[in-house]
């Protein structure tokens, strides 16, 4: 399947937001963003997840490129265990899962990793890669 970053992120958000365990940890759908982490979005005492693309990698063969999706889980530092549990569940949900007809998602090391963030918060980063074919077609209106 060709490169479809926007719908891939939406598919990832659907999987995460639709999971009952993730919901039980207090991550509501309206706090799962299709954008990168910024401090301005950190809300006091709120658990948030940011889903966005980072730099792609070369694909396994020439016809592929490997888009990389990063998922940052941010929680107030007193609830750090919630971020760890969410990270564990997201790894289980996405590893080996095919999204939008691409090859299966693969967790990239050193995920899960603690990321530097604002004082008073805990942030865990995960990265997944998959292969997409480089032959996108021209769309018409």
């Amino acid at each position: 399947m060709p490169i479809t970053p926007f719908s891939d992120r939406l598919a990832v958000i659907d999987i995460i937001a639709g999971d009952p365990y993730i919901k039980s940890l207090g991550f509501d759908r309206d706090k799962i963003y299709n954008t990168s982490y910024t401090n301005e979005k950190l809300e006091k005492d709120t658990r948030q997840i940011f889903v966005y693309n980072t730099n792609s990698e070369n694909g396994d063969i020439d016809i592929y490129i490997s888009p990389v999706i990063e998922i940052d889980i941010s929680v107030p530092v007193g609830q750090a265990s919630k971020a760890c549990l969410a990270a564990e569940q997201i790894i289980a949900l996405l590893s080996g899962r095919e999204i939008n007809g691409h090859t299966a998602c693969e967790l990239i090391a050193p995920s899960p990793v603690n990321l530097p963030c604002q004082f008073g918060y805990e942030c865990i980063g995960l990265r997944f890669r998959y292969n997409a074919t480089i032959f996108n077609t021209v769309k018409t209106v």
Partner: peptide
Amino acid sequence: TWFTKGNGS
């Protein structure tokens, strides 16, 4: 962090 943490960096 992504470049240097852990064996899989």
